[in-house]
Amino acid sequence: MPEKPSRFRDPTKQSMLLTALYIAQEQYGYLSEEAMERTAARLGLTLKDVYSTASFYTMFRTQPLGKYVIQVCEGLSCFLVGGAERLVDYISRKLNIQPGQTTPDGLFTLQTVQCLASCGTSPTLKVNDELYEDMTPDKVDRLLDQLAGR
């Protein structure tokens, strides 16, 4: 049996960290210091351990975002069929925010993301956990109206 390096002692608790961070993010809306402290306490980790992991992954956020987070794929295959920045610009003008920003009513945040593994049905974007494929400006109009409850 190969000798176990010491860093592999007590692996199971830290293994739950990503899951725990998802739960904390869901409860607090984002990973506030309090959320990370509570996660650390629950798993018997230090705040440094938790922060070190949380800060590595783009899906963990350390500030509040809009109710609907719109993530537009800026990958090559999306660009080739009229997506990427063309779609970003369209949404940007429509919502009057730049990528990275949130509308003043807190409803929408606009972000760009890397390839969403839907290149055969691109252009693609995600709203929260939902994937939208073959997007056109028309479809974006309808989607945003629907989300805004109009």
Partner: peptide, 26 residues
């Protein structure tokens, strides 16, 4: 099932193992 959290590099097998252990996916 373990869910990653947004990092292409976690597809590299050893980065994936670190991520499964709850660490940075390096």
């Amino acid at each position: 099932v373990h869910r990653g959290a947004g990092a292409y590099i976690c597809g590299e097998e050893t980065a994936m193992l670190n991520s499964l252990e709850g660490k940075r996916g390096e």
